[in-house]
Design a protein around this nucleic acid. Sequence first.
RNA 1: GGGCGGGUAGCCUAGCAAGGAUAGGGCGCAAGCCUCCUAAGCUUGUGGUCGUGGGUUCAAAUCCCACCCCGCCCGCCA
Length: 649
Amino acid sequence: MISGNPLAELRKECEALLKGAMGSLRMEEALIKHFAFEKPPVWEFGQLATSICFELAKQAGEKPLALAQRLVQAVDKARLQLVKEVSAAGGYINFHVNFEQFSALTIESVRKLDAEYGLVKVEKPQKIIVEHTSVNPLHPIHIGQARNPMLGDALARMLSARGHTVFRHYYVDDVGRQTAVIAYGYEKLGKPKPTEKPDHFIGKIYTVTSCLVEINRLKRELERAKMVSADEEMAKISRELDDWVSVAFELKQKCPDLFERLLEKIGEDPDPEKSISELNKAYETGDERAKRLIREVSQLCLEGFKETLSRAGVFYDSWDWESDLVWSGLVAEALRKLRQTPFVTFLGGVLEFEAGKVVDVLALRERLGLRKDYEVPSLTLVRADGTTLYTTRDIAYTLWKFNKADKCINVIGMEQSLAQLQLKIALYALGFKDYAENLVHFAYNLVTLPGYKMSSRRGRYITLDEVLDEATRRAYEEVSKRSPQLSDEGKRKVAEIVGIGAVRYALVEVDPAKPVEFNWDRVLNFEKNSAPYIQYSHARACSILRKAARKPEKPDYRLLKEKLEQELVFALAEFPETFVEAVETLKPNLIADYANALADKFNTFYNAFPVIKAEPLELSDARLALVDAVRIVLRNSLNLVGITAPERM
RNA sequence: GGGCGGGUAGCCUAGCAAGGAUAGGGCGCAAGCCUCCUAAGCUUGUGGUCGUGGGUUCAAAUCCCACCCCGCCCGCCA
């Protein structure tokens, strides 16, 4: 017999036995809302348990323990299959697995279903867009942002494995002042050819330009403040200026040539600030020169991103340019529709969206989980100069996405929670209730650097490239030490798999709601609770199978009598349910945890018992099959979070 | 001021939606284990007012209320 979800079979049997027992005692099934089975704290208590007797005891006017004992008595022993024994203890009813049956069912199912084992499909597949990464094309992806693609890609893989049709979208945010800043600097330099990885190259120009323009602007403001002798204002500006001057000092040391040239060129411009906002405006209106320039810089930067991300195993189905939404009129269209609602007003020359009013009028408070008196702030849709704002364009983008999908998951930092809420409210306001309810903001917390705050504008960051390089370098050292027999190419391959796995795992393993403090020890962890640890366990399993040099032809699963073996079997059986839970709650870290726990059990087993040399042959074969099943599940779970499982390392 | 998220051993972290038996791991520290399928491993020990105080319940890390600490947001930035 084969099952895609052995644990569910067991659960079903437990439930049937329990209902049967209740029936024979003339107890109403309806007394119990749903039959929840939990894992007892100690293996010896059994593998599944229920605490319904605590609840039932009240109505029955009986002690929980006595009731549990009566129910256990009433269980129809003739119907036991996957369950060996039912017992009562402390008011709980414990179900002990019949491993003679269950081991065979589980191991055979895993080996038969192989790459599909555990990946339980949904009944109604949806079209889902996962929008992730979407780093602005201004500078290389830094480690603070790297959590996003790792989470987004893991989610996409998980949803796809669940049977959904998943599209991975990258939203290229090329509209806005920042892109104009980099394009401005790039043009001032005469559109130079990159002398290094293009996103790093762009990043330097961006930071220096941005810094010089900022200093220029602050100096002017300081002058202005002096004229009207606004002391407080002056002090504030001076502080900001000091900050940027120290940034300038850092940058001048880091890239002196670039700094000097930009200083000179920008110095020639009487009003850089103005040039930049003009460029920004020209781009939004679709001016050809601006288009060519900004697209060129953005494209250059994206090339760098693609290189980094594909190295990390992250790919996209669609690159959506924000500017296309503006030029094609979709943004204008969305604005027109919004204006027809009673929630948009002119206020001080700008167009405002009154999100708070929508919440009250459409009675969305409870649905959105908002507090009683909380008033959602209004959102400015259009600037006084007629240009649009980020969230406005995001409204148009979201409408566009819902033309292609049933559900949209936005992997965006939690600092944008309010904007994402306003976006959702805008969908309600437009009458797209269905869209609003299928829009998910997958919020995650920041990665911080101890000591100072990472700042892309200030050029203070650790790039993902650096981290990947360092991780693979370290992995190469390790592989060379441990597997000197491998060819250099072989070592490099393994090092890449292990190093990148380590980084991905570190960024996916923690609850996305919690901030992660970056430190090399965390990311370069090659010991327990890391990708390399799980990968190592997988390689060990492969190694056993390779050395055995035979298929397990006559396994006798009844011989798997050791507690460790049975625990391992049970863990394998749990995988499908862990997978389903992880996908339904969008928690990639559950998969990472599961894989780590399985690796843990496997290593204990590995250490305790021989496999190839086990006697008799039927036991050796049974263990071989078990090892094979562990291998499959380790690989499947690692793959779900985008980590490759090497066969040797 | 308001909103959101977080607070679990020296450090990091799981569990919280669906309350259940002895709160799982990891790092660190201490002591062991390679003539045996990869020691990136295994075993043992060490360490906890689950932020604080109330409440609900047979049962609270988990639910409710209040408060404290940390982070983020409340822009004609993205």
